[in-house]
Lab assay of single mutants.
Amino acid sequence: LGPKYVGLWDFKSRTDEELSFRAGDVFHVARKEEQWWWATLLDEAGGAVAQGYVPHNYLAERE
């Protein structure tokens, strides 16, 4: 699936296409579209919880 990303700060969605998340949440990014990335929010087991657009500057690649 490629690298995983972690949320740096809490983010509250403003549209139906955006995905709310908390700092520390883990994502798989499917598409990078300039300022907004289409991402899947993952649970602790790595299963998909939700999908939506997230601001790229709120995520960091997980080491």
Rank of each mutant, 00 (worst) to 15 (best):
residue 48 A to H: 08
residue 24 G to Y: 02
residue 21 F to N: 00
residue 4 K to G: 06
residue 55 P to N: 05
residue 47 G to I: 13
residue 15 T to V: 09
residue 42 L to A: 01
residue 44 E to A: 12
residue 39 A to M: 03
residue 23 A to M: 08
residue 58 Y to K: 03
residue 49 V to H: 04
residue 24 G to D: 03
residue 29 V to Y: 02
residue 39 A to H: 00
residue 14 R to S: 14
residue 56 H to F: 13
residue 41 L to G: 00
residue 59 L to I: 05
residue 4 K to P: 06
residue 31 R to F: 13
residue 34 E to G: 15
residue 28 H to K: 07
residue 18 E to K: 05
residue 54 V to W: 04
residue 8 L to Y: 04
residue 25 D to T: 03
residue 38 W to M: 06
residue 22 R to C: 12
residue 15 T to H: 10
residue 57 N to A: 08
residue 57 N to D: 13
residue 30 A to H: 15
residue 55 P to V: 05
residue 8 L to T: 02
residue 42 L to P: 00
residue 63 E to S: 13
residue 35 Q to G: 13
residue 35 Q to C: 15
residue 15 T to L: 07
residue 15 T to W: 09
residue 60 A to G: 09
residue 16 D to L: 11
residue 16 D to E: 12
residue 39 A to D: 00
residue 61 E to V: 14
residue 2 G to N: 12
residue 47 G to V: 14
residue 41 L to A: 02
residue 14 R to T: 14
residue 28 H to C: 10
residue 15 T to R: 14
residue 13 S to Y: 03
residue 31 R to S: 07
residue 14 R to C: 14
residue 48 A to Q: 09
residue 21 F to W: 02
residue 43 D to F: 06
residue 56 H to R: 13
residue 63 E to I: 13
residue 57 N to W: 14
residue 48 A to K: 07
residue 31 R to D: 05
residue 43 D to V: 06
residue 26 V to N: 07
residue 24 G to N: 04
residue 37 W to H: 00
residue 38 W to T: 01
residue 39 A to W: 04
residue 54 V to N: 01
residue 63 E to M: 12
residue 51 Q to I: 07
residue 8 L to C: 13
residue 39 A to S: 04
residue 8 L to D: 04
residue 7 G to R: 00
residue 47 G to N: 15
residue 55 P to K: 05
residue 6 V to D: 04
residue 40 T to P: 01
residue 50 A to N: 07
residue 44 E to P: 11
residue 38 W to C: 08
residue 17 E to V: 11
residue 33 E to D: 10
residue 3 P to N: 10
residue 5 Y to G: 01
residue 39 A to V: 15
residue 9 W to N: 07
residue 22 R to F: 11
residue 5 Y to R: 00
residue 40 T to R: 03
residue 8 L to S: 04
residue 6 V to I: 12
residue 36 W to D: 02
residue 34 E to W: 08
residue 32 K to E: 04
residue 26 V to M: 13
residue 21 F to P: 01
residue 27 F to I: 04
residue 1 L to P: 13
residue 7 G to F: 07
residue 63 E to Y: 12
residue 7 G to V: 07
residue 47 G to K: 15
residue 22 R to V: 10
residue 19 L to D: 01
residue 17 E to I: 13
residue 4 K to I: 15
residue 50 A to P: 01
residue 36 W to S: 06
residue 27 F to N: 01
residue 43 D to I: 04
residue 55 P to W: 06
residue 62 R to M: 15
residue 16 D to I: 10
residue 9 W to C: 15
residue 10 D to H: 05
residue 44 E to G: 10
residue 60 A to R: 12
residue 59 L to C: 04
residue 55 P to D: 06
residue 18 E to M: 12
residue 3 P to H: 10
residue 12 K to H: 14
residue 43 D to E: 00
residue 30 A to W: 14
residue 31 R to P: 02
residue 29 V to D: 01
residue 55 P to F: 05
residue 44 E to D: 12
residue 25 D to C: 06
residue 52 G to I: 05
residue 14 R to N: 14
residue 38 W to L: 08
residue 41 L to K: 09
residue 3 P to W: 08
residue 6 V to W: 04
residue 2 G to H: 13
residue 2 G to E: 15
residue 8 L to I: 11
residue 60 A to M: 12
residue 62 R to W: 15
residue 9 W to Y: 14
residue 56 H to P: 14
residue 48 A to G: 09
residue 47 G to E: 14
residue 30 A to Q: 15
residue 8 L to E: 03
residue 11 F to E: 04
residue 1 L to W: 13
residue 19 L to Y: 04
residue 62 R to V: 15
residue 9 W to D: 05
residue 17 E to L: 14
residue 45 A to E: 13
residue 60 A to E: 13
residue 13 S to G: 15
residue 61 E to K: 11
residue 18 E to P: 00
residue 48 A to N: 08
residue 13 S to V: 03
residue 21 F to G: 02
residue 12 K to T: 15
residue 27 F to S: 01
residue 44 E to S: 12
residue 2 G to V: 14
residue 51 Q to V: 10
residue 11 F to I: 01
residue 56 H to D: 07
residue 4 K to S: 10
residue 20 S to N: 06
residue 56 H to M: 13
residue 16 D to M: 10
residue 45 A to D: 14
residue 49 V to T: 06
residue 11 F to D: 04
residue 55 P to L: 06
residue 63 E to A: 12
residue 21 F to K: 00
residue 40 T to C: 13
residue 12 K to E: 15
residue 20 S to K: 03
residue 51 Q to P: 01
residue 44 E to Y: 09
residue 34 E to T: 10
residue 56 H to V: 10
residue 25 D to M: 06
residue 52 G to E: 00
residue 63 E to H: 12
residue 56 H to S: 15
residue 1 L to R: 10
residue 24 G to H: 03
residue 38 W to D: 00
residue 19 L to A: 00
residue 17 E to W: 13
residue 9 W to F: 13
residue 34 E to Y: 09
residue 25 D to L: 05
residue 48 A to L: 09
residue 42 L to T: 03
residue 24 G to C: 08
residue 16 D to P: 14
residue 37 W to D: 01
residue 6 V to A: 03
residue 28 H to P: 01
residue 50 A to S: 09
residue 26 V to H: 07
residue 46 G to M: 05
residue 2 G to R: 12
residue 32 K to L: 05
residue 41 L to V: 04
residue 34 E to H: 10
residue 45 A to W: 14
residue 58 Y to R: 03
residue 16 D to S: 12
residue 51 Q to E: 14
residue 48 A to V: 13
residue 23 A to S: 07
residue 63 E to V: 13
residue 33 E to N: 08
residue 37 W to L: 05
residue 56 H to G: 15
residue 17 E to T: 12
residue 1 L to G: 12
residue 27 F to C: 08
residue 34 E to M: 09
residue 44 E to K: 10
residue 34 E to R: 09
residue 52 G to V: 04
residue 22 R to E: 07
residue 4 K to A: 10
residue 21 F to Y: 01
residue 7 G to K: 01
residue 15 T to K: 10
residue 21 F to M: 03
residue 50 A to G: 09
residue 21 F to H: 00
residue 33 E to R: 06
residue 47 G to C: 14
residue 12 K to P: 06
residue 28 H to L: 15
residue 27 F to D: 00
residue 60 A to V: 15
residue 5 Y to L: 02
residue 6 V to Y: 11
residue 30 A to P: 04
residue 46 G to H: 06
residue 4 K to D: 11
residue 43 D to N: 10
residue 60 A to W: 08
residue 45 A to C: 15
residue 28 H to M: 12
residue 55 P to Y: 06
residue 13 S to P: 05
residue 22 R to W: 07
residue 1 L to H: 13
residue 16 D to Y: 08
residue 49 V to W: 04
residue 41 L to R: 05
residue 2 G to Y: 14
residue 38 W to P: 00
residue 59 L to F: 04
residue 13 S to Q: 08
residue 60 A to Q: 13
residue 33 E to A: 09
residue 1 L to S: 12
residue 54 V to Y: 03
residue 6 V to E: 07
residue 42 L to E: 03
residue 35 Q to K: 13
residue 41 L to Y: 02
residue 62 R to D: 13
residue 45 A to V: 10
residue 13 S to I: 06
residue 48 A to S: 10
residue 57 N to L: 08
residue 34 E to D: 13
residue 15 T to D: 08
residue 26 V to E: 10
residue 5 Y to Q: 01
residue 61 E to I: 15
residue 58 Y to V: 05
residue 58 Y to W: 06
residue 46 G to F: 07
residue 46 G to D: 08
residue 9 W to I: 10
residue 37 W to N: 00
residue 10 D to E: 07
residue 32 K to H: 06
residue 18 E to S: 06
residue 39 A to C: 07
residue 61 E to R: 11
residue 18 E to L: 10
residue 2 G to P: 12
residue 3 P to K: 13
residue 18 E to R: 06
residue 23 A to Y: 05
residue 5 Y to F: 09
residue 30 A to D: 14
residue 56 H to I: 10
residue 32 K to M: 09
residue 29 V to G: 02
residue 11 F to Q: 03
residue 11 F to M: 01
residue 45 A to T: 13
residue 25 D to S: 07
residue 48 A to C: 09
residue 10 D to W: 07
residue 20 S to V: 03
residue 31 R to N: 07
residue 54 V to M: 02
residue 33 E to P: 02
residue 49 V to D: 02
residue 61 E to L: 15
residue 45 A to Y: 14
residue 58 Y to S: 07
residue 28 H to N: 09
residue 53 Y to L: 07
residue 47 G to Q: 14
residue 60 A to F: 09
residue 54 V to R: 02
residue 14 R to W: 08
residue 19 L to N: 00
residue 42 L to V: 07
residue 6 V to C: 13
residue 59 L to Y: 03
residue 25 D to Y: 05
residue 49 V to C: 06
residue 15 T to S: 13
residue 53 Y to W: 15
residue 12 K to S: 13
residue 51 Q to L: 05
residue 29 V to R: 00
residue 13 S to C: 08
residue 48 A to D: 09
residue 27 F to R: 00
residue 44 E to V: 09
residue 2 G to Q: 14
residue 13 S to L: 04
residue 52 G to P: 01
residue 33 E to Y: 11
residue 39 A to Y: 03
residue 17 E to H: 12
residue 49 V to N: 04
residue 1 L to V: 12
residue 10 D to K: 02
residue 4 K to V: 15
residue 34 E to L: 10
residue 26 V to T: 11
residue 30 A to S: 15
residue 5 Y to C: 06
residue 26 V to L: 14
residue 15 T to C: 15
residue 1 L to E: 13
residue 25 D to G: 05
residue 15 T to A: 10
residue 51 Q to C: 11
residue 37 W to K: 00
residue 12 K to L: 14
residue 31 R to Y: 12
residue 31 R to E: 06
residue 1 L to Y: 12
residue 42 L to C: 07
residue 12 K to N: 14
residue 50 A to V: 07
residue 61 E to Q: 11
residue 11 F to C: 08
residue 18 E to Y: 12
residue 35 Q to N: 14
residue 34 E to A: 12
residue 55 P to C: 09
residue 46 G to R: 03
residue 33 E to S: 09
residue 52 G to S: 01
residue 49 V to E: 03
residue 8 L to P: 02
residue 29 V to C: 04
residue 42 L to H: 02
residue 56 H to L: 08
residue 42 L to K: 00
residue 43 D to K: 03
residue 51 Q to F: 08
residue 25 D to A: 08
residue 16 D to A: 13
residue 4 K to M: 15
residue 26 V to S: 08
residue 52 G to D: 00
residue 37 W to S: 01
residue 38 W to E: 01
residue 50 A to H: 05
residue 21 F to D: 00
residue 61 E to F: 09
residue 20 S to H: 02
residue 1 L to Q: 13
residue 8 L to K: 09
residue 4 K to N: 09
